[in-house]
Computed example of a mutant assay.
Amino acid sequence: MKIEASAHLSKSGKEITLREARISDAHSLRKCILSYINGLTIPFTREEFDKSDTEIENWINELNSAPNCLLLIAEYEDRIIGNIDVTSSRRSMLKHTGYISMGVHKNWQNQGIGSLLFRKMINEYERNQEIELLWLQAFGTNLSGLHMYRKFGFNENGRQKKFIKTHDNKYIDNVIMTKALI
């Protein structure tokens, strides 16, 4: 998908650029992702996220070249502060769906960056004739994330009890949410 870059204001009035990721963003994107991996909202640890800049470059290239896939970044003063990606299945019976994942740099959380990314992504997919259903998974304890997803029209379709087990042996539900676009 080819997306026009656009400027937006954060809650604090800072100008944020939303645009498609480029190969040259790999290092900055990797640093952003490492900042928000905290074991509270993403189901892997910093140690498990051992991607090199080259692997991130390959991921960017794969999403940018795959049909109906998208990788958007939020940028402030040439630093990546958030990202959202949508992956469309290659399976024929699932090609009408797009799986969403996202994160916001730890220093930029609760500034409206996630909502900016989500709004731009949904606007793009509402114009896309091939993706009919967007879906995501979220920690049941991620109350602010669940609130935002509902705000954008996502509905809870299932809850996998005790699906996530933390390092301190606590269990968290996995919430599955969808938004129909047709």
Results as ranks from 00 to 15, higher is better:
residue 84 I to G: 09
residue 109 Q to V: 12
residue 113 I to N: 04
residue 106 K to S: 09
residue 98 G to K: 05
residue 64 N to V: 01
residue 112 G to Y: 02
residue 71 L to A: 05
residue 93 M to S: 13
residue 107 N to R: 05
residue 126 E to G: 03
residue 68 N to R: 07
residue 135 W to Q: 15
residue 92 S to K: 13
residue 107 N to C: 01
residue 88 S to A: 14
residue 103 G to F: 05
residue 134 L to T: 04
residue 83 N to F: 08
residue 109 Q to D: 06
residue 89 S to A: 11
residue 94 L to M: 11
residue 82 G to D: 08
residue 99 Y to E: 11
residue 104 V to W: 07
residue 97 T to F: 00
residue 99 Y to K: 14
residue 132 E to S: 15
residue 93 M to Q: 08
residue 115 S to Y: 10
residue 84 I to T: 12
residue 137 Q to Y: 01
residue 113 I to Y: 06
residue 89 S to E: 07
residue 83 N to L: 06
residue 66 A to Y: 01
residue 131 I to E: 05
residue 93 M to Y: 00
residue 73 I to V: 15
residue 84 I to N: 05
residue 91 R to G: 04
residue 110 N to E: 11
residue 84 I to F: 07
residue 105 H to A: 09
residue 81 I to T: 05
residue 131 I to N: 05
residue 68 N to S: 10
residue 129 Q to I: 12
residue 80 I to M: 02
residue 137 Q to N: 13
residue 113 I to H: 08
residue 112 G to Q: 10
residue 65 S to E: 13
residue 70 L to A: 02
residue 124 E to N: 15
residue 115 S to L: 02
residue 64 N to G: 13
residue 88 S to M: 05
residue 135 W to S: 15
residue 126 E to T: 04
residue 66 A to W: 00
residue 76 Y to T: 00
residue 89 S to D: 11
residue 101 S to C: 11
residue 113 I to D: 00
residue 94 L to S: 12
residue 89 S to I: 15
residue 107 N to F: 08
residue 77 E to C: 02
residue 128 N to P: 06
residue 67 P to Y: 01
residue 122 I to L: 11
residue 92 S to W: 01
residue 118 F to H: 08
residue 101 S to F: 05
residue 90 R to N: 12
residue 84 I to A: 07
residue 85 D to Y: 14
residue 107 N to Q: 11
residue 113 I to T: 07
residue 131 I to G: 10
residue 99 Y to T: 14
residue 106 K to D: 13
residue 98 G to E: 07
residue 94 L to A: 15
residue 72 L to I: 12
residue 113 I to G: 09
residue 137 Q to W: 05
residue 84 I to M: 13
residue 132 E to W: 06
residue 65 S to N: 12
residue 97 T to G: 08
residue 72 L to Y: 07
residue 107 N to S: 11
residue 64 N to I: 00
residue 111 Q to K: 15
residue 121 M to C: 12
residue 78 D to E: 15
residue 94 L to D: 10
residue 126 E to M: 12
residue 99 Y to W: 07
residue 123 N to Q: 15
residue 91 R to A: 09
residue 128 N to Y: 00
residue 112 G to D: 03
residue 96 H to V: 15
residue 137 Q to A: 12
residue 103 G to K: 10
residue 84 I to K: 03
residue 131 I to L: 10
residue 73 I to S: 04
residue 92 S to N: 14
residue 75 E to L: 04
residue 116 L to R: 03
residue 86 V to H: 05
residue 121 M to H: 03
residue 124 E to S: 11
residue 120 K to D: 14
residue 96 H to P: 14
residue 134 L to M: 13
residue 71 L to I: 10
residue 123 N to E: 15
residue 89 S to C: 07
residue 70 L to W: 08
residue 136 L to F: 04
residue 95 K to C: 11
residue 92 S to M: 14
residue 114 G to M: 05
residue 114 G to I: 07
residue 92 S to T: 06
residue 91 R to C: 09
residue 85 D to A: 03
residue 64 N to R: 13
residue 115 S to T: 12
residue 103 G to T: 03
residue 82 G to C: 03
residue 76 Y to L: 14
residue 127 R to D: 13
residue 69 C to A: 13
residue 130 E to T: 15
residue 80 I to H: 03
residue 133 L to W: 00
residue 102 M to W: 08
residue 94 L to W: 00
residue 75 E to Y: 06
residue 116 L to P: 14
residue 82 G to L: 04
residue 125 Y to K: 06
